[in-house]
Nucleic acid binder design. Structure first.
Lengths: 350, 350
DNA sequence: CTGTTAGCGCCTTCAT
DNA sequence: ATGAAGGCGCTAACAG
């Protein structure tokens, strides 16, 4: 009957505050605050009366005010590069999924340019904005460290590693081992001319995975007495198309490789494409192994090195929330395992 | 005057507040606030002095306090289902990218269960937590509407449509037209036995795209005088594996289809897989068309219906921020076009 | 048990 | 142009 359904009018309707509740319930704001926060020291009777009013008023505490008052923001930030890339995406999902079952909100900073990287590294970890920060797949550079440490905020690195990061909590995967595993598999199949297609080793984003995997690759070669051949390593921008080009180069070599290790499944797809283009049958003429085991890998029957993407995110936040609650934890470094998944793109060398 | 400026305190972890700056600069907090907010009514001299102190103290205004005081949260929430699915992911990227160039933060609620869907629909759009909300690819049900309207917060639907949603701002794609386009393409190639593989038409998430595309599919058939055959429409959970099974059923029919329209590229991949398994050559024995034009589509040479994924997100936030600034906009409904992308999985019927 | 009060850090009149 | 003071909505310490 009253025109409260009018959108214009309801727009101006101020939402109830704790004070309104207190007044209507005939109690002090302190009491209302207590029932909101499930403080046991409230008589059942009073509690019911307050609850009653809260309900009838449709009152919900203002989270901002609460944050200011308590000093906790109940918000976690994650800095992630290229979050649409399947592997990063899956890590992100691990984080989100864990947070979904908590009271924390998740704000995401997607990094696709170096400028943004720098801004994020330096400004996000400021205290009083987030209770904690996760930096994913971006290894801080030495000149970022001062910012991170000064900020003095709970911080966890996921998939980011570097000797000078030892003082920071992190969840990583042993990419050296992974690179070794992949190469070793190829060697065991009898391959000796083994290519490696990767991201640029040095990037302004400071991605490290291609570097470490290269190291594992070299180790395996060395161990098998196969000399490392510079020509067999191609580096370029991340992406299928770029990887395709690199594979083309590799396969045009006079003594072209009989097997190629790609630093990611996405890149492996580019290699597959090149092989196909050149009429090379996989795995008979060319063995291909990827890295990550993203969803599409199974579809393609791609042999790959699986890493626990989802799990890394999940463990990362778990650790982070732990730190939030027990400020003075010793730096933790959790290493997640990799696993060789043999499918149909690798075979015995002929 | 010497009281609070003790060295111990300043060495402590507590970050500087506006008051510290004011004291050290010998001005009132009001003045500091003005320079922070670029209020022109401050003498250049004073401004410089304050800036100086701000710098030397490494002072940064506390965003929470500012939010409480101004009533603006500078935060946008987006509710998105299964954000790892390539199409949703790409929409999300459009949103993120636009926000990155603004002062707004982005908090993400990923919905993978019905319970979470309901919680999000009802609790997120509460005023005073976010300045605006985007609901993506989840069409509110009629019983959600009261919550959305009562919340009375700037709200934009992206890729969500429904007659009863006419009062809400939205950026949509004409899925009927898209479904029509795909089917029409197949018909023009001479196909008459055309299968349609889709999500369940009725889902607790209230996804609508498969429904609308079915409608377009029917329209095209009808227009060509081809009777709609219930057996040719398979519905199931979203996903490649499920789609694979559906395609298997379709292709085992006595009078099996010579062409299949899949409601998404992901599902088209399942169809491709089934065809491959059955020794059917695409496109000679079977034409396949997808929907979305996600990145992998090009790699697969998949014919598909492209929709402006990234753009939809971008337009969505743009609209949202517009609403935030000009509260009383008439409900806007922006329709994004679809485009037929012919590649290598469709061919003339034999 | 419960009411009162003093902040949390900032913005915004209101005088000056 | 600038300082002082009130308030945003809530929590928590302190008296009763």
């Amino acid at each position: 009957m009253v025109e409260n359904d009018n959108p214009i009018a309801s727009r101006s309707v101020k939402t109830a505050t704790i004070r309104d509740v207190a007044r209507r319930a005939g109690v002090g704001v302190g009491t209302v605050s207590r029932v909101i926060n499930n403080n046991p020291q409230v008589s059942e009777e009073t509690r019911q009366r307050v609850l009653q009013v809260i309900n009838s008023l449709g009152y919900v505490p203002n989270p901002i005010a609460r944050k200011l008052s308590t000093g906790r923001t109940l918000t976690i930030a994650v800095i992630v590069p290229f979050f649409t890339r399947p592997s990063f995406n899956e890590r992100l999902r691990g984080i989100e999924s864990f947070l979904a079952s908590s009271d924390y909100d998740l704000v995401i900073y997607n990094v696709e340019t170096v400028e943004r990287r720098d801004v994020c590294m330096q400004e996000i970890p400021r205290k009083d904005r987030f209770d904690g920060v996760i930096i994913m797949s971006l290894s801080p550079r030495d000149d970022d460290l001062p910012y991170l440490q000064r900020a003095n905020i709970p911080l966890v690195l996921v998939d980011a590693n570097h000797p000078s990061l030892a003082s920071l909590h992190r969840v990583i995967v042993d990419d050296i081992a992974g690179g070794y595993q992949a190469t070793r598999h190829l060697i065991e199949l009898g391959h000796t001319r083994i290519g490696y297609v990767s991201d640029y080793l040095e990037t302004p984003f400071n991605f490290t995975s291609s570097r470490f995997r290269l190291e594992g690759y070299k180790q395996a070669l060395h161990e098998a007495g196969i000399p490392f051949c510079q020509d067999y390593h191609q580096q370029g921008e991340h992406g299928r198309a770029e990887s395709y080009s690199m594979a083309m180069k590799l396969l045009s070599l006079p003594d072209f490789p009989t097997a190629i290790f790609a630093a990611s499944d996405t890149q492996a797809m580019g290699v597959l494409q090149a092989a196909n283009e050149l009429g090379l049958r996989v795995p008979y003429d060319l063995s291909v192994i990827g890295y990550d085991d993203i969803e599409i890998a199974e579809y393609l029957g791609l042999t790959t090195v699986r890493q626990l993407l989802y799990e890394s995110g999940r463990r990362g936040v778990e650790l982070l929330l732990n730190i939030v609650d027990h400020i003075n934890l010793e730096p933790v470094c959790e290493v997640l395992p990799t696993q060789l998944i043999v499918r149909k793109t690798t075979a015995l060398a002929r």
